[in-house]
Write a protein that binds this DNA or RNA. Structure first.
Lengths: 275, 275
DNA sequence: TCTTGACCCTCCCCTAGTGGGAGAGTCAAC
DNA sequence: GTTGACTCTCCCACTAGGGGAGGGTCAAGA
């Protein structure tokens, strides 16, 4: 009882272009009900129209064809619902990210950046409690929150006082390859007993060019840029992973405007630098 | 006073990959300050770092490289600001669209679609006042609002009573090629004098397969799909542009849930249809 | 001065999801 | 039988790069 349609008819019925339908056939997303083995002519049936509509829906949401295929091939309604919900959640997440980026850019255009001072600082080796892991740059913020919470809890349980604000050490691959090693540490006066992911750590001594970044981390690239300009203008070679100290952060105040982050790029010891 | 950097140094300073920097050079977005004519080695200066940061910012917002180029090449700050603001506005618009699509899809998953009845109807020629234009499918909703408002105002000014709800006639190219001819008309008992874009019009007589769509237009593709399935299952060839009648719309109620839209696909006269 | 390893170059192919077009074969109506 | 609309496959183009081959360049150490 379902009519047979040429690809042109099916195209008009679904508002998907002929080119697109052929592509969906090639990748196995929407198979014609029949293909003439001699002429190669495709035939569709009208009960494929709802399927095509569903595909259009998901494509409008930029779901990859492969993911749409998984949804369509899902064995049961529960699996299907989970797949769709997962995609929607990801989508809403990325929407929120983009909105934050837009807001930050708008703000930047309206309020030009106040110039920040850069100073050199020699950091001695620092005994601390730390968590180290290889993370995706996209998960970094969430990972940091969890890690620093775990360290605080561990120090508190062992009655060890913290010797300063928390810090992070980030391998350069984290930025160049979206994935790399990250360490979050909290200076500690006595050695922590390993519990869970937390273990004792000594932040290595470094000579750093420092900038203090004020406000949300959404704008942190500006400070990084200023720092990079400074370092290269003074022909200081860059060595090793970057380091950040969170003087004032989410733990201290809810207002992102008040956050203070020190960002340090390791440089050669000044005795190597031609004046 | 600005240091000279190899592409690798510049890559580390800006967190843009070497591949990406070469690509930006190729497309003329970010030219190295110097290229060795013998070796082809690129050289960058540290005062190009802020430019690279700006490019990164915009790329995070998925701005096409070409558009970023226009922003960077803008002759003055005002032009630049306008270009950026325009992009941000488009971006926020598309974010809102996507959010609506997500919400609509979520809703669809939670509340399955009630089946709608389809009927045939023979529409006689209808005298009307109308506006016709070639529009982009993306602008259609906004264009419709403006057009129908102008028609209402014109009829009112000429004291002509309207003979029914407003309708639209949409060429198929509008859906298949994102751009096509659209007409919005309001039945009128006497002939309107042309004013502005508004002119007299006779909606041609057609035989239509009709479905009544209830609710927001975000879900209208479902009704279209049902209609397409019906039409092809009954082997009724599709002829000419689709037609919609806005029985209850934005003009009548603010609650999109209560909107009622009749959607009609032209079909061959029933005498041609094998039973 | 030579070697070595890190760095850089171009060129080509790959991605996803189409659009455009060439050249050839097919269908249906007149 | 012809014509015109339709369809087929194949190739190239687009974005914003990534991966890798094959080869040239640079700077430091021996």
């Amino acid at each position: 009882m379902s009519g047979s349609l040429t690809i042109g008819d099916f195209s008009r019925a679904t508002f998907l272009s002929v080119k697109t339908l052929r592509h969906y056939h090639r990748v196995g997303l929407l198979e014609p009900s029949d293909v003439d083995p001699i002429t190669g002519y495709r035939r569709y049936t009208s009960n494929q129209i709802p399927t095509a509509q569903v595909i259009r829906r998901f494509r409008d949401l930029d779901m990859p064809l492969e993911d749409i295929g998984s949804v369509l091939r899902a064995p049961d309604q529960t699996t299907r619902g989970r797949l769709i919900a997962a995609h929607l959640t990801r989508l809403e997440q990325s929407l929120a990210d983009t909105q934050r980026a837009v807001a930050s850019l708008r703000d930047l255009l309206e309020h030009p950046w106040p110039p920040a001072a850069i100073e050199h600082r020699r950091i001695p080796a620092t005994p601390a409690a730390a968590i180290t892991a290889t993370v995706e740059v996209g998960d970094l913020a969430a990972w940091y929150q969890g890690a620093v919470g775990e360290i605080r809890a561990t120090l508190s349980a062992q009655s060890i006082a913290s010797g300063g604000p928390p810090g992070g050490i980030y391998a350069n691959e984290l930025f160049s390859e979206e994935r790399g090693e990250a360490t979050v540490f909290l200076p500690a006066h006595s050695e922590v007993r390993p519990v869970g992911r937390v273990g004792p750590f000594t932040a290595p001594p470094v000579e750093l060019a420092f900038i203090t970044h004020i406000g949300s981390h959404a704008d942190v690239d500006r400070s990084y840029g200023a720092l990079a300009t400074y370092v290269t203008e003074h022909t200081l070679a860059i060595e090793g992973p970057v380091r950040e100290y969170y003087l004032v952060g989410r733990h201290d105040t809810g207002d992102e405007q008040d956050w203070r982050t020190e960002i340090g790029w390791p440089i050669f010891d000044t005795i190597h630098v031609p004046i």
